[in-house]
């Protein structure tokens, strides 16, 4: 039962991180902070996989290796996403001089074609 409790605590942590990540994504206006928030959201999701893996400890293993392998794949994919988002942001700053997603009232008025 003690081990159950420890796993449950990490599960609650995962749930809280998911909420925290989505909140940060919505309320932080700066794109780089939004990218950071998505990473926190992602880590919460991955942690949930970890909790599920730990609950599936069997066959002499400390955890179910299938969700663990999925997390490894997921971390690499999340890294690619972060890299692309950061590159887009730096490009945006280069062409517009400001790191903001706002002032979207007149979308593509300049290069609509």
């Amino acid at each position: 039962m003690a081990i159950m409790n420890a796993i449950t605590i990490f599960g609650l942590c995962a749930a809280a991180l998911v909420g925290l990540g989505i909140f940060g994504l919505i309320v932080n206006p700066q794109p780089l902070r939004k990218i950071l928030a998505i990473n926190i959201l992602g880590s919460g999701v991955f942690l949930m996989f970890g909790v599920i893996a730990r609950r599936g400890a069997a066959a002499g293993l400390g955890g179910d290796p299938v969700p663990q392998a999925m997390v490894i794949t997921g971390i690499v994919v999340a890294f690619s996403a972060t890299a692309l988002a950061v590159a887009l942001l730096l490009r945006l700053v280069l062409v517009s001089g400001a790191a903001t997603l706002e002032a979207e009232a007149e979308p593509s008025e300049k290069d609509g074609r």
């Binding site: 998911v18 999701v45 949930m48 996403a81 988002a85 942001l89 490009r91 979308p107 290069d111």
Partner: peptide, 24 residues
Amino acid sequence: GEATVKAALRYLLFALLGSMLYLM
């Protein structure tokens, strides 16, 4: 162009939120 980079970044952020919810 500036507007298209902005649109792309916005698209990516929405899409990433979507994938994370799906993954959850």
